[in-house]
């Protein structure tokens, strides 16, 4: 797969193939609902099981860690880097800065000023950041810069036009049933690849289609197609009046790698199966550790549940 920025951008924006139809979407939904219901059948009512992309990965790579109690949350640079990094890339896309290194400082200062003035927290970490000394603040800014720079360098952003969204709210979908299971999907970039009036309008293939971009730590594992498709699955379940995202591109900056899937019914089904497996592992862990109780997030240290939602890479060995 080419490492060219232009090639990568073009591939993301290419006219999408035939979209996942409503029937296929419904079938996957039913498969997921049935599977999850079976997986959590042994759990007592109440409580919430949350699933996110990092937990899917963890369930496959370190199943013994699923369902372990979460450490108490405390802000640290890796929790703040995603939100600040995305803001920096957004500001660069808008032409306000020449690169993330120039953007992070002013953006953080502005957010803290705004919080002091109005109490409004753009990023949620403003009070923590404001309480740090100069060295601590610099460490946060450095972390955000290093996170944001590969994303900034990955695409020809001008090619995306106005239909690009950086960050934004997570996609969420709650699986119906007596025990709540919530799926959360977080991507870094959403791109409209075929607006009404675009090329596909004339062929009727995928008007309004979108693509997602996900940034991860580490290296792509062998199951990356299912994992990337999970993000399309949650987006497609969340909003049935919009097409299922046509493709998902994953960036693994540490590995200098990117992978892309063209989403179809088969991949959505495989992603749904991964969800069921993850929920089942979580249910077993909860059954074996009754003290955990309450909400069990399978997202763990990857930062889901945190307002900022930073995706924390595994510690460097």
């Amino acid at each position: 797969m080419s490492h060219s920025t232009g090639t990568r951008t073009d591939a993301l924006l290419a006219v999408p193939p035939r979209p996942v139809g409503d029937d296929a979407r419904a079938r996957v939904r039913d498969r997921l609902v049935d599977g999850v219901a079976g997986a959590v059948a042994g759990l007592p009512p109440g409580g919430l099981v949350e699933v996110a992309l990092p937990s899917l990965r963890r369930a496959r790579s370190r199943p013994e860690s699923v369902g372990l109690a979460e450490p108490d949350f405390a802000w640290k640079p890796v929790f703040a880097r995603r939100s600040l990094g995305l803001a920096a890339v957004r500001a660069c896309v808008e032409g306000r800065f020449g690169g993330p290194a120039a953007a992070v400082g002013p953006l953080a200062d502005r957010a803290v000023d705004e919080w002091r003035r109005s109490g409004w927290r753009t990023f949620h970490w403003e009070p923590w950041f404001d309480g740090l000394g100069a060295g601590g603040r610099a460490a946060v800014l450095a972390e955000a810069t290093t996170w944001a720079t590969p994303l900034w360098a990955a695409f020809d952003w001008a090619e995306f036009g106005p239909g690009v969204v950086l960050g934004g709210a997570d996609d969420q979908w709650t699986c119906p049933g007596p025990r709540a299971v919530r799926l959360k999907g977080r991507c870094e970039v959403r791109v409209t690849i075929d607006p009404p009036g675009g090329p596909a309008d004339t062929t009727g293939t995928a008007v309004g289609a979108s693509a997602l971009v996900s940034v991860s730590g580490g290296s792509p594992g062998g199951d990356w197609p299912e994992e990337l498709s999970y993000l399309a699955l949650v987006a497609g379940l969340r909003s049935t009046d919009r097409p299922v995202p046509a493709r998902v591109l994953g960036l693994w900056p540490e590995a200098g790698a990117h992978r892309m899937v063209e989403v179809d019914g088969g991949l959505l089904g495989a992603a749904a199966d991964r969800v069921v497996t993850t929920v089942a592992l979580t249910a077993v862990a909860r059954s074996n550790a009754p003290d955990v109780g309450g909400t069990v997030s399978t997202a763990s240290e990857e930062g889901f549940g945190v307002e900022d939602g930073a995706a924390v890479e595994p510690a460097l060995v």
């Binding site: 800065f97 020449g98 690169g99 993330p100 290194a101 120039a102 953007a103 450095a142 972390e143 810069t145 290093t146 720079t149 590969p150 900034w152 360098a153 730590g217 580490g218 290296s219 792509p220 594992g221 062998g222 693994w252 540490e254 590995a255 200098g256 890479e313 460097l316 060995v317």
Partner: peptide, 24 residues
């Protein structure tokens, strides 16, 4: 200059042999 894209403590990984060896 920011346009040089400076980044500190960048982690580099190379996965070899189907992930059986990873240089970090």
């Amino acid at each position: 200059d920011p346009s040089w894209l400076p980044r500190t403590r960048e982690t580099l990984r190379a996965s070899l042999a189907g992930g059986r060896v990873e240089l970090v």
